[in-house]
Amino acid sequence: MLNYIWGGMILVGLTVGAFNGRMQDITNTVVDSSKEAVMLCVTMLGIMSMWTGVMKIAERAGLIDTLSLKLKPLLRLLFPGIPREHLALKYISINFIANVLGLGWAATPAGLKAMEELQKLNTRKDTASNSMCMFLIINMSSLQLVTMNILAYRSQYQSANPSEIIGPGLLATVFSTIAGVAACKIFEKRRGE
């Protein structure tokens, strides 16, 4: 995918730039932007390693497991098609909690395992089950509590208060997730009959 996006952006830029007579600006940009990318990563090194350090403690202390147990009653409501003690529920809850905490490396493996378990329950193997649709829609509605990288970018560009967007971002996330779940339930009813 990035093959086309990246190459496309550059080629479109070069073509439009040639017509607009902006080649000088483009040359400067190539030099400046690459320098800027490194400066940005230096800022990110500090913020991200602080956060991943704290999250490592959370992981070692078993916080993910504890929180995923708390999620179970809610999951039963969202996924009525999964038997009570099925492994799929465990992986789904780990995936959700890891996403909430922003632990991408823990979220994706658990998510793939969840899909594997859901596929075992699935009756038509080439077609997504209701549970799969619900799982992925919630997953893609964004669940993250603190988007640390956005804070790092804001701080790099001299925001007076990089973290002020956490609360608003979280509120918006609540809306997107509720909309996703609602849409999913409506689709389920309509196509289920």
Binding site: D126, C133, I137, S141, S142, T173, A179, G180, C184
Partner: peptide, 20 residues
Amino acid sequence: VKITKTRYTLAGALIANLAG
């Protein structure tokens, strides 16, 4: 998991994103 028919997953995800 080799699923090709994704049903309403895309529609639901786009609705969630639009709401966001």
